[in-house]
């Protein structure tokens, strides 16, 4: 039994990294722009579908270009549909992102059809590694490494560069930053594009694991919200801890009480919100209080 538990915990941690990857984009867009982005799942789906279309002609380059394509879609949507709503009733933004989610899902259905598409991992990443009771597939290890690299790169970018400092300052006090003569509009557009591109990366990497269907956004949106809520809105560290926590909880519930494995992440969220309403590492932000 101990062996099975160890194997499930490791499997849960690896799955957790996938949840973290799915949640980062949502966390960026909420943390920096204060937008609760219900359309996060469709950017995830678009990543997979762009890769599907590009992989035949471009091969491995599709993995790089598909998220960039999603980022471009994000930039266009921010400039045309999101920007007019800044500073207005937050509910409008919610409705807008919800509408975008429905629209893009239908668009995917119209362009690529309702039926699912096969999507295999590249041959060099197929197979798995076994250490004692632990089994990890090479592909999931690859996803883990990519997730860690993205997190490190984002952290370095936000903490170490001038641009990152503007984003962080702008997210806390947009008026003051504007008064310093910085064009915040462009900064917001770039942040939105970055968040959607990261959602696109998650979609590309999840495609070989999960079904590639128009409704695949559903597989991403709920875990992403749960992870971000548990971790604390806008906190990267919180998202990592909570993603891993959700992954391990799901894996262990499948070992002992599988029928509850979907409910367990919501139970965890309720529990944490009762104890810490801001989430694990959520800070007090003037704008959201």
């Amino acid at each position: 039994m101990t062996e099975l538990i160890i194997s499930q915990v490791v499997n849960g941690l690896v799955l957790g990294f996938l949840y973290v990857l799915i949640a980062i984009g949502l966390s960026i867009i909420f943390g920096m722009l204060g937008i609760v982005n219900f359309a996060h799942g469709v950017y995830f789906a678009l990543g997979a579908y762009f890769a599907l279309t590009l992989r035949d002609s471009l091969g491995p380059w599709a993995i790089v270009l598909a998220p960039l394509g999603v980022g471009v879609v994000g930039v266009i949507i921010e400039m045309t549909l999101m920007r007019p709503l800044y500073g207005k009733e937050p509910l409008l933004g919610l409705f807008m992102t919800f509408g975008i989610a429905l629209f893009i899902e239908e668009l995917i259905r119209t362009i690529w059809g309702a039926a699912g598409h096969p999507f295999n991992p590249p041959a060099w990443l197929s197979g798995f590694i076994v250490w004692g009771p632990v089994l990890v597939t090479k592909y999931r290890l690859f996803v883990l490494v990519v997730t860690v690299l993205i997190l490190v790169a984002l952290w370095l970018f936000l903490q170490g560069t001038r641009y990152g400092r503007i984003i962080r300052a702008g997210s806390r006090d947009p008026e003051m930053v504007s008064m310093l003569g910085i064009n915040l509009k462009r900064v917001f557009t770039a942040v939105f594009g970055l968040g959607t591109a990261v959602a696109g990366i998650a979609g590309v990497l999840a495609a070989p694991l999960w079904s590639v269907v128009p409704s695949m956004s559903e597989a991403a949106i709920m875990p992403a919200f749960v992870v971000v809520t548990i971790g604390g809105l806008g906190s990267f560290g919180g998202a990592v801890i909570s993603g891993l926590l959700v992954g391990v909880s799901v894996a262990l519930s499948i070992q002992f009480w599988p029928a509850a494995s979907t409910a367990v992440m919501y139970a965890l969220m309720i529990l944490i919100l009762l104890v810490r309403p801001r989430g694990l590492l959520g800070e007090s932000w003037e704008r959201f209080e």
Binding site: G12, W210, A251, A260, S261, A263
Partner: peptide
């Protein structure tokens, strides 16, 4: 094992 309808990741079931 009973799995909730709409489960995306079966890796933990497959380990069992």
């Amino acid at each position: 094992d009973q799995a909730p309808l709409g489960t995306t990741d079966y890796s933990s079931y497959l380990l069992k």
